[in-house]
Nucleic acid binder design. Structure first.
Lengths: 214, 214
DNA sequence: GGCTACCGTTACCGCAAGTAACATGTAAGT
DNA sequence: ACTTACATGTTACTTGCGGTAACGGTAGCC
């Protein structure tokens, strides 16, 4: 029958697709996001047109590649976020999970967040904004849902939760990016600093003596 | 003498440079960051090699272009940040300044933050990560300095201030990006929501009833 | 054997970054 | 006035990438 054939082919195509993605992963992680389609094809032992048959265009390949890593990270974050613990513990665990992930595989992280600055030849890399934002956005939405679901924020809760979700994710991202670049302290210290910030320590701290007027 | 000559030529070269930058600005803001060097040269009424003589390569042009806008934005932020007012007022003013800036000129904003997604043809755009990060980084460092200088944070103040500086900037950026895309509320509302977050309202809020165990 | 469908290739197009080599105007040195 | 030197501009080219069209085997089915 046709259906069984179709599924067989589908199966084989899916396997091939996974192989290609793994090859692409290797190349991108080695050569940076500037990796050319030719290079990826070569790594996979085939030639360009096949890549295009599977992924449409370079953006398609990028998207597929990014989705794999993104999904993995999001799953880890969800676990930390949904753990049955006190709020601050959960927040710290989530921050730590994120930072641990980008610390463990900075190549992947840089690929997802800052494509096109990989190798020495920073020619035209992958299409960045179009595909890197989604990770932050998804994380923000996810966090927003958890906040709205768990925290009592009164009437404007929906708006607040979403603003906070995106804001907190951005905070985590920017601080993590800075930390990964300079390594100014241990992971735990950064987690603590950020949690303190979220816990209102900025508002609670006193003015420094000798400051300007007032 | 040679020196006077040099300065004269320098002057003329600088003027030319400024003209070229303005032309580049027009093109980039019109065609998106995918604008080709040819197009920019044409807009300026000259040809490619001249651009290369002035800016080295495309990254150089991008950097020069970004620096102009970045400097302008940073100056506005500094003003809001240094105003002689209470802390929360200053924070809100700074957030509002930033949001107002990206609201007023989204094209510029998108160019600085998310290059390479401009026009319908999202071919290879400018070199992104290499040059977009600096804005966030500079803002983070700037904010960190102000925090450390003004807020009494105890012994680990240097580290805390830097982590917070980058974190807060990241929060502002991510929330602003989301807000600019969806416009889910007024600017003032977002400012308020973010300031509330920084003021520890997340920690102070109660758990929602009917939540999971515990 | 012939037909179709798939997997793969070579060879090409278009286009953009970046460069080399050449032309020209203009100011100073003699 | 003639030459030298230099900045300014050009045309024409190379290289390399994304993307595609057209062709070539090789299985199964009739």
């Amino acid at each position: 029958m046709e259906t069984t054939q179709r599924t067989d082919q589908q199966r084989s195509a899916d396997r091939r697709r996974r192989e290609l993605l793994e090859a692409a992963d290797r190349v991108v992680l080695r050569d940076g996001p500037g990796a050319s389609m030719n290079a990826i094809a070569a790594e996979a032992g085939i030639t360009k047109p096949i890549l295009y048959r599977h992924f449409g265009d370079k953006g398609g390949l990028y998207a597929a590649l990014a989705k794999r890593h993104t999904d993995a990270l999001l799953e880890a974050l969800r676990a930390a976020l949904d753990a049955p613990a006190e709020r601050r513990e959960r927040v710290e665990a989530t921050l730590d999970t994120y930072l641990a992930a980008i610390e463990a595989r900075p190549q992947v992280y840089r690929f997802l967040m800052h494509p096109s600055e990989g190798g020495p030849q920073s020619d035209q890399g992958f299409d960045v904004g179009t595909h890197s934002t989604p990770l932050l956005r998804r994380m923000g939405e996810e966090l927003a849902e958890v906040i709205e679901e768990r925290v009592d924020l009164g009437p404007a809760s929906h708006l607040l939760a979403r603003a906070w979700g995106h804001g907190i994710v951005g905070m985590m991202h920017a601080a993590g990016d800075w930390w990964l670049g300079e390594r100014p302290c241990s992971r735990a210290e950064l987690v603590h600093a950020l949690a303190d910030l979220l816990w209102g320590r900025l508002a609670a701290a006193g003015d420094k003596l000798g400051g300007p007027a007032f």
